[in-house]
Design a protein around this nucleic acid. Sequence first.
DNA 1: AATGAATGAGAGTTCATTCAT
DNA 2: TATGAATGAACTCTCATTCAT
Lengths: 202, 202, 202, 202
Amino acid sequence: MTLKGADGRILSSKGERTRGRLIEAAEQVFADLGYHDASIVKITEAAGVGQGTFYLYFSSKKEIFDELVRDLNRRVRHAMKEASAQGGTRLEAELLGFAAYFRFTSEHTALYRIIRQAEFVSPEMLHYHYDRLSEGYVEALQEATAAGEAGAIDPEVTAWALMGMGELIGMRWILWNEQRELPRRVVNELERIVRCVLEPPG
Amino acid sequence: MTLKGADGRILSSKGERTRGRLIEAAEQVFADLGYHDASIVKITEAAGVGQGTFYLYFSSKKEIFDELVRDLNRRVRHAMKEASAQGGTRLEAELLGFAAYFRFTSEHTALYRIIRQAEFVSPEMLHYHYDRLSEGYVEALQEATAAGEAGAIDPEVTAWALMGMGELIGMRWILWNEQRELPRRVVNELERIVRCVLEPPG
Amino acid sequence: MTLKGADGRILSSKGERTRGRLIEAAEQVFADLGYHDASIVKITEAAGVGQGTFYLYFSSKKEIFDELVRDLNRRVRHAMKEASAQGGTRLEAELLGFAAYFRFTSEHTALYRIIRQAEFVSPEMLHYHYDRLSEGYVEALQEATAAGEAGAIDPEVTAWALMGMGELIGMRWILWNEQRELPRRVVNELERIVRCVLEPPG
Amino acid sequence: MTLKGADGRILSSKGERTRGRLIEAAEQVFADLGYHDASIVKITEAAGVGQGTFYLYFSSKKEIFDELVRDLNRRVRHAMKEASAQGGTRLEAELLGFAAYFRFTSEHTALYRIIRQAEFVSPEMLHYHYDRLSEGYVEALQEATAAGEAGAIDPEVTAWALMGMGELIGMRWILWNEQRELPRRVVNELERIVRCVLEPPG
DNA sequence: AATGAATGAGAGTTCATTCAT
DNA sequence: TATGAATGAACTCTCATTCAT
């Protein structure tokens, strides 16, 4: 995909680099300070560019926020997909996906911290994020049911239930504890829950 | 409990009324606009008092935010406890508690919308809220286990998992759909999940 | 007329004083620097108030500009009317009106300097100013004709012609020369022209 | 006259073309938006050249403004001279000159709109414009007097009076009405006034 | 207990100008 | 001769907080 500047022009490779620096800086600054305390100056300083440069790539603070949400969303889904593809059974796949999610969380605290702000900053991106993420769960659950590895469950509701578990458990044991991984006992319990939620028939 | 003003003095009954009006107004304004777009002027206008009056009761914008979180937290826990006390079995109790939670959510959208802002506005209140809420779940789960109505589960992890489900399902089907109740199929599926999470032995 | 703040509230006498200080400061700053180089900070500094205070009385830079135009317009018309009332004949009245106009010009260079900017800053005030000013001329000319002291002239066209003369002669010999009065020879010539423009019959 | 770039070098014919395109674009953009809202980007976009190209021909925004004023001034004087040369008598010549002025005004609204901005943008060009324009009037009036076609008038004062009439009448009936010509009644009245201002002896 | 005028730091954003290509 | 990415000073405007009344 060719990246574009704030005025719609296609970016040179130098432009892409600058834009990338800004997104990276924004991830950091938003994660540290939150949307409101993160100022354009702080972002451009962190990116090592001038204030005006920002507006060559994004037309407003909200725009880089939205872009960042899209970016993080794409990456977390990618990481989860990659990981779950390694699983032999559906259950394994699901648990590996969760693990990837927690790993991503620990490396990109921005994801959590930013999404929760989107409520007022950019409601459309809040929906976008959860909808996209839930799609991944739904697909996996449908396949599992089709393959006879999960019971007659409602994939959508179950997807949101699983997302919710992941979200709060990630917040509690990854973010708050500043850990890279869940404690053993949490992993075990989570496995139990996921197993019974999938409820393989018989 | 005797309420106090910003300077620690005990409030007259007139004072209590004014303070109450401010908290109510804050709930509305924070819920509608979010913490940052909610200005003190808008809160005082909504409360029908002068700007300066605000500082007789709260020493800062953050203080009324914290107070409001405490208030909502107290009320939602109360509502859940009341409801679950009506349940004959633990499962029933749990489901009634959830129902009360969703009802409260629909009547006080501020709860969701404010909590999600707390990440940066007042991290300590974020913890406070989820910790207190999870305690209710933990207690119930422990009792259930003791009564033989739940399996050998880890109550803390399970509590956070249940909170997470409630949070995202409430967001998806109550808040986003602007409904007072969950759709039938969601209730059914949720019941299935909760039942298996409790995993009554045998 | 009761003065109002930016939010429509009626001003206390203290408020009126502050507002007056701002208008005075704006006249000075606009006259010295022009609309675009005049910043809110410079105006508030000149008025001796804080930056935020400005917005209690005017909602934008343009609003104080418009108000100032209205104010100057009112005053220059008043000055001209007062002066011309002293004239015995219509010709005398007209000349005294002109003299008052030039005097006002020398004391309020803002009038000239600002009006010429209104073209883009506030076109509606540009019209307002010239329309209102021309009305004064038109009335006087109609009365003169009715009284047999002026010929069968088209009062509107003549009014704009007289305004134009006044404007450029004032610019050339008052503003550019930084004089309080026109040189004798200019006065004489102007008298000749006005006399023949009025063209008393016979 | 050989045209020069911003650094004083003599322009190639290609360079002259580019420079011409910039001046044309500037006339349009300044006329539409005024000096301050007209940005270099908008001018270069309208001219179809890159931003940096601008500075090969003009060293600043003000410089192209000054150049444009000179250009318009030259052209309006030329148009007036051409036209008045067709007149048999001085009066006819004067009226034809006026007509040409109004025609030019309708075709180059930039003249008015730009000049009125010069007050603060470039005071020296404001003087330049009116001085040069008045010279034309003065010469004509002197010739008329010498030829016995005008009375013993003060040519300079009369020149500025005539310029003023033309300016406001042009603004009122050409610019504001967006007409190409003055209405008949205005022409008639203007003729009356000019005739009496020239005051041919006898 | 209540008021609201006043404050000023700091926000997002624009744009004339420079310069490496 | 031409380009356009980069700059940063300066702008308008907001709002939590103070304080004299």
